[in-house]
């Protein structure tokens, strides 16, 4: 284990602790939804970090196809895996949040649907990697799929959005909406930072393990 990785892990742990303190200690109880709204500090950062992860997959895939650097392939693999984990957390917490507020675990509203399609696409990505034995070929194919998948996300988003929508528009980035209580935003930002650190830690560790795996089985 490298010292940088260890430091990242401690930072992530610290950040998550701070995030919990912010979410439960500092941020006030939301007026209309009550304390159940505190799920947001988990739900929203998870999907933002997942988008970041899949963006990294796209960039790493392009770099791999360009210069065939094995490091870029490992980064894409690790990032996709962590992104899928975070997407799963987003979907699960969303369902748990939806039950008390909407009265149902699941509705086919636009953002739920598009995020779950994204989840399935990247599960397929990991499946493709797992099913090809030749490492170099797996890297090439996964890179192509990583590019198609990432470019598909906006298409999925728009198509599903036009198809049907119930979801409240994103509270944070809605222009002209009344500003949220700064403590809410601060708590959200702290949690986002913590999740990014966690993403960095997981990805760095996974990349190193993938490299070791290649060395051992070489």
């Amino acid at each position: 284990m490298t010292s940088r990785e260890r430091a990242l892990g401690w930072l992530a742990g610290l950040g998550l602790t701070a995030g919990l303190v912010m979410a439960f200690g500092v941020a006030p109880r939301e007026a209309t939804q009550g304390n159940v709204q505190r799920i947001m500090y988990l739900h929203v950062p998870a999907i933002l970090v997942a988008y970041l992860a899949f963006g990294v997959v796209l960039v790493a895939s392009v770099i791999y196809l360009w210069g065939r650097a094995a490091g870029a392939d490992r980064l894409a693999h690790a990032s996709a895996e962590v992104g899928v984990v975070f997407t799963g957390i987003n979907i699960a917490t969303g369902a748990i949040w939806g039950k008390p507020t909407w009265g149902t675990w699941w509705t086919w509203d636009a953002r739920l649907t598009s995020v779950s399609i994204m989840f399935v696409i990247y599960l397929g990505y990991l499946l493709l990697r797992a099913m090809i034995e030749d490492r170099e070929r797996a890297a090439r194919f996964a890179a192509v799929l990583g590019i198609v998948a990432a470019l598909d996300i906006p298409l999925v988003h728009f198509s599903v959005y036009w198809w049907r929508t119930l979801h409240q528009p994103p509270t944070l980035l809605r222009p002209g909406s009344p500003p949220m209580d700064p403590t809410f935003v601060l708590a959200l930002m702290v949690n986002l930072a913590a999740f990014m650190l966690l993403y960095g830690y997981f990805t760095a560790k996974r990349v190193r393990l993938l490299r070791q795996e290649e060395e051992v089985f070489a």
Binding site: I117, V120, I121, G124, L127, L128, M131, I132, R137, F141, V144, L145, V148, A149, D152, L155, V156, F158, S159, V160, W162, W163
Partner: peptide, 25 residues
């Protein structure tokens, strides 16, 4: 891509269908 994969009959639709959601809709 899937032509050389062992489980191509399964993998091909599993990869293709979710990506094709926008076109289908």
């Amino acid at each position: 891509m899937t032509a050389h994969v062992r489980a191509r009959e399964v993998l091909f639709p599993v990869l293709l269908l979710p990506v094709q959601v926008p076109v289908l809709l």
